[in-house]
Amino acid sequence: MSAFITNIIHLFSQQLKLEWKSPFIIGGNLLYVIGAVFITYKIFNEISAPVWVCVYWLIFLFTALNSTIHSFSREQSDSILFYYSFTNPVVLYLSKVTFNFFFLMLSAGLLFFFMWLFLQNPIVDDGLFLTAMVLSGLGFSIQFTFVSAIAVHTKQSNTMTSILGLPLIIPILMTAVKLSLISSEVIIDDGSDIDIMILSAIDMIMFGIAVILFPSLWRS
């Protein structure tokens, strides 16, 4: 088990180094976040709490899509061969998911900061909002990583990731939006723990299925 975790950490740091070597990917994503927030600011100037929440999640969704879309397609064919021969596919998948998750959380934090800077902050219940962000970021990275692993085998892998991933992500997104609306007191609802449970349950189901299916996907 410890070897398993060491492998994940090793691949994770490998991934980090890889990203560090081509910083334009991370930089591009950050620029995307800032640009999107600034456009929103110029269009709306002032923004009501529900619209703030919707814009926040839309930008978050497309940042997630942009950053995970290349999870597998950027790998060189020789590094794929390396992974193929030396690592357990589950380890590879977990390291990718972890990396995407941390990257998403970083983007979400920056997104929140810039939204706050330009468009104020309607969130009242910070803890609930943070929970929604972490749980949905986890769900996004689990699903998008898996879907991009499927899409990398097709001809237009980038388009295919969006086509396959967007419908699958809607339940997570809707629950997260509802939680954020509760946390900004747009809707008054004391049943937020049920939504948190739904979100965690979706994450767990998706994670379980993805871990079971990923080896057969990777071997193809």
Partner: peptide, 12 residues
């Protein structure tokens, strides 16, 4: 693979 994944996503 996608069919199984989609079915699991559909249950909730």
């Amino acid at each position: 693979i996608y069919n199984i994944f989609a079915f699991a996503a559909m249950i909730p």
